[in-house]
Write a protein that binds this DNA or RNA. Structure first.
Lengths: 223, 223
DNA sequence: AATCATATTTAGGTTAACATAACATTTTTG
DNA sequence: CAAAAATGTTATGTTAACCTAAATATGATT
């Protein structure tokens, strides 16, 4: 394993590669790496038995790949918890450092850190922290962008990207908010949503088209 | 900067490249990298203005190189302190993890960590932790192997190498011990020293030839 | 001082991870 | 449904950091 392979694994995992197929383009854009380079690296992951690749169709993770990615997510989120809880980082500042730390974190260090933090179950972004033995509660891979006007949902998870988090922080849009989709502006314009929690009367928020692909939601059961 | 350049800087620093010239061979052996590769990398450090190189004579650090190396040492030692003080690592276990962590530690993280630890001044091995603004107390670069029979000295610093620390732990040879050199066995055999602290009556220790190159001492002023 | 051993540098080759550009396949659309 | 657009793959080139082996310099020994 190399840090780069780890980054690919993690991004495929986060894009939903545990259940669906992820496209080359999604990976290429998320990592900001040329499409050709992605194809190359994916074929190495396939050789390593960590991913499957059907040309022109997409990429998924094998069970082994999933297990590895989960442990990376575990390391990442433990570090985020450390940075916020112990070093007083702000939520929007944690990503870069945690991203680097996770690649150099031995299993012993991971477990010691977890103990030190009181074996937390959730990171500061609301994500579940997988346990050492790989038990992992599934969370949403449904993007806000997939909802239609009138749909109601709860914001379950935010992709861990500094720019995104800063943006959402600015527009005051939080994890756990219950929302109703009001309208989609044309030409990839923003999605207007209404905040449904008690205290926010009729407040609305405009979430950019791009950001809506990095906000994951749990839709309300069909009415 | 890359992690590898950082490793070179740090090793040159630790081998005394702040004041004397360090040989290609010393670097090559310490990092377990072929001599040719060392020449190549050193020439990059020279291009970067971090080191000076006189062919066939040796390598030293520039002021800028020293400053950078000090900050690496600072990061390394802060992590060691964290691992021992907060995560209950044993002294002989800290090196590997700290070595990896130091390369991915931003300045912000370094300072936050230092605050969290109470701005410690010394790492668990007895080394001084340089401050953020580069103030750094010099410590000994005199190796136990350089002493002659009859010399008296205090053990000031141990190179931070797992095998070495495990070995010294086994033979019960500690930081701070005041010693007198009794004899040098021929053919690179062990150096016999006598422990001079009150409670160790006439106790002696045999330190292997190789280990004696990684134990740094402050000799007693000439009598 | 000539020889030999050791240390260092130089030259040429390898690998991982990237890029660009040409080619191939899908998907969209008039 | 054919042409255009988008996406994906293959081929080729680059860079950083390593290696081995050959060439060169230094210093130690007779």
């Amino acid at each position: 394993m190399t840090p780069m392979k780890e980054d690919y694994l993690k991004i495929i995992f986060e894009l939903g590669g545990t259940s669906k197929m992820v496209s080359n383009k999604q990976i290429s854009q998320s990592l900001d790496i040329a499409a050709g380079s992605v194809t190359e690296m994916v074929s190495k992951l396939v050789e390593d038995g960590l991913a499957t690749h059907t040309p022109y169709a997409g990429i998924s993770l094998t069970d082994e790949g999933i297990e590895l990615a989960e442990q990376l997510v575990r390391k990442h989120r433990l570090w985020e918890t450390f940075l916020v809880d112990k070093l007083d980082y702000k939520l929007s500042e944690v990503h870069e450092d945690a991203e680097q730390l996770e690649h150099v974190t031995s299993d012993k260090l991971t477990n010691s850190l977890s103990d030190f933090l009181g074996n937390p179950t959730h990171c500061p972004h609301g994500g579940v922290i997988p346990t050492a033995d790989g038990v992992y509660q599934q969370y949403s891979h449904i993007m806000l962008s997939e909802l239609e006007d009138g749909d109601v949902a709860v914001v379950d998870r935010l992709a861990d990207n500094r720019d995104l988090l800063t943006y959402l922080d600015q527009i005051d849009f939080d994890l756990g908010d219950k929302i109703k989709v009001i309208s989609h502006a044309p030409f990839e314009g923003p999605i207007t949503v209404q905040l449904l929690s008690e205290k926010n009367g009729e407040e609305q928020r405009e979430v950019s088209f791009k950001a809506s692909h990095y906000v994951f939601v749990i839709p309300e059961a069909d009415k």
